[in-house]
Design a binder for these strands. Structure first.
Lengths: 128, 128
DNA sequence: ATTATAATATGCCATTTGGCAAATGTCAAG
DNA sequence: CTTGACATTTGCCAAATGGCATATTATAAT
């Protein structure tokens, strides 16, 4: 039942790697010391709500998502997704992608989208 | 902005009186020592998420309601999933771009970034 | 190889949390 | 007033949190 905190560290590390960020970068973005973050990841410390809240966004978590993973909120508590993920339609942007693209100037961002739509068109033609 | 925790104690006490419960009864129902509860109410201690969670139900609060009052969750966080697109936009991400890319599955998003970095490398080589 | 540099881990320590036991306050019944 | 039963507050302390400075690794770059 209390699978909550068991490997919160692993989950956080996984996500940090996946984003990806280094401990120091995450520290910078979250205003939590990298040493503390490191200890949290390897289970030597357990993050408080304050800390959890600070690292949620940089990691691309919803606040209550992370809180639930940490066992601070009971699993079904936060209204959110009402069964049958029928409405996954509005996706969201991968934090890593957002970060990478965000560093490019606007023209480049636009160009990337332009290229993407060209590629999609090509793919559509090939499918037939 | 952070008037959230300032009177958390008062809010908790108000609610406890309103229910009504004594500190000891609340202590019994929540498994939190009455001394600690007392200190929390008069602002000498700040409750951790664990404590907050324990006292939520006996007081008739929703967990996330209390968490929000305590400043552990941001006010609008747990309502719905609408999101106007600009969720954790790292600062300079063009909203249009975010919207377009956000509709692609994660693999595609990643692939796009991959292609971008390839192009950047090529450009770097050509510049030299 | 040898540095240089970034990333992660550790030692140490101030601060906070939260429980237990004892003190204090409150109030009705005798 | 005094006793007795609760309720609240305080003293003290162990355990945990989280930051800073300092090691210890990894990872490149020459």
């Amino acid at each position: 039942m209390d699978y909550s905190n068991s490997d919160l560290g692993k989950i956080i590390k996984q996500q940090r790697i996946k984003v990806p960020l280094t401990l120091q970068e995450l520290a910078a973005e979250s205003s939590v010391s990298s040493s503390h973050l490191g200890r949290i990841e390897r289970g030597e410390r357990f993050p408080s709500a304050r800390i959890l809240r600070r690292i949620a966004k940089p990691l691309g978590f919803d606040e209550d998502e992370l809180f639930t993973l940490a066992g601070f909120l009971s699993p079904q508590a936060h209204g959110g997704v009402e069964e049958t993920g029928a409405r996954y339609t509005s996706r969201q942007l991968d934090p890593y992608v957002a970060r990478m693209l965000g560093e490019e100037p606007p023209e480049v961002q636009r160009a990337v989208i332009g290229i993407l739509s060209i590629l999609k068109n090509m793919a559509k033609g090939m499918a037939k």
